[in-house]
């Protein structure tokens, strides 16, 4: 039987389309404009499709700065931070959810309290610490501070809290060690929540600007956001080139999201309450 749609359905439909259009349009604009020469980009009235199609913006991004190096830096650090962040969040969250130890709730409260503090207020302290142990201007400063993520711990704990103990006990009787129970049973069962966390952590690291900006000052270590910003400092407002670089930056995020989209939505909607 065909479902009859009422007015609120259509209203919702129009709203959604509008929201999708508003969010998506800047990307289309960015992408199309990256093929326009600078003078066409700034012309009035503006053109929507490029009239003088050129890929010069893309080539000059690579020619005028070590864009490839920035790309590698960003991918390697974000990749590593995501990998370690997911494992640590999952392990720590699992421990908070499934083990009993003295002062567990008090410790968890402290951990949660850390989530409430805005990152900006922590940054000076962390920076001083990094200077003190001479980690600034290295890959270490771009990775290690990202290895533990409190939101990740919280998210994974919520999932594991709802995971029935029977699975874990079955694995224990089947002969698993405590670590194997987590690695072979609990972690794979958290699949959809973990996928959301992968996207979240990757974006957090890949897009972060402030921290790499203050903690690194060698060009060789610049990540993409800092690299693009440096373009503006160096060469003024070369908008066309900027758009070409920006178009390239979003590619990995798009790919990641395309792969994980279904799991991501599943994780966001059913997240902590999955049985």
């Amino acid at each position: 039987m065909k479902k009859k749609h009422n007015l609120s359905y259509w209203l919702m439909f129009v709203m959604m389309t509008l929201i999708a259009f508003v969010s998506f349009f800047p990307f289309v604009w960015m992408f199309l404009s990256s093929f326009k020469p600078q003078n066409e980009l700034l012309s009035m009235p503006p053109t929507f499709f490029p009239e003088n199609f050129t890929i010069a913006n893309y080539t000059s991004v690579f020619k005028q700065m070590p864009f490839g190096q920035y790309y590698i830096n960003s991918l390697v650090t974000a990749g590593l931070n995501t990998l370690v962040g997911v494992i640590s969040s999952s392990l720590i969250g699992y421990i908070f959810a499934k083990y009993d130890f003295p002062f567990k709730n008090a410790i968890f409260l402290v951990v949660l309290a850390c989530m409430m503090i805005p990152y900006e207020t922590l940054m000076p302290t962390v920076y001083k610490l990094m200077v003190g142990i001479k980690w600034t201007n290295s890959y270490k400063v771009l990775t290690i501070p990202y290895f533990v993520n409190i939101f990740g711990i919280f998210l994974m704990r919520q999932f594991y809290l709802d995971l029935p103990d029977d699975y874990l006990e079955a694995a224990e009787v089947d002969g698993c060690s405590q670590f194997e129970i987590w690695a072979r049973i609990a972690m794979p069962m958290a699949n959809s929540t973990t996928s959301s966390l992968v996207i979240f952590l990757f974006m957090a690291s890949y897009n972060s600007f402030m921290w790499p900006l203050i903690s690194v000052d060698t060009r060789k270590l610049f990540t993409l956001p800092v690299g693009i910003a440096s373009m503006v400092w160096d060469r003024g407002n070369q908008y066309a080139m900027l758009l070409a670089a920006a178009s390239m930056i979003i590619v990995p995020v798009c790919i990641l999201f395309a792969f994980m989209q279904r799991k991501f939505i599943e994780g966001m909607t059913s997240g902590g309450i999955k049985g």
Partner: peptide, 14 residues
């Protein structure tokens, strides 16, 4: 060297 069958089966869903 024991094994156990649980009330709610506890089959690993993945």
């Amino acid at each position: 060297d024991i094994s156990m069958v649980f009330q709610n089966y506890a089959l690993y869903p993945h």
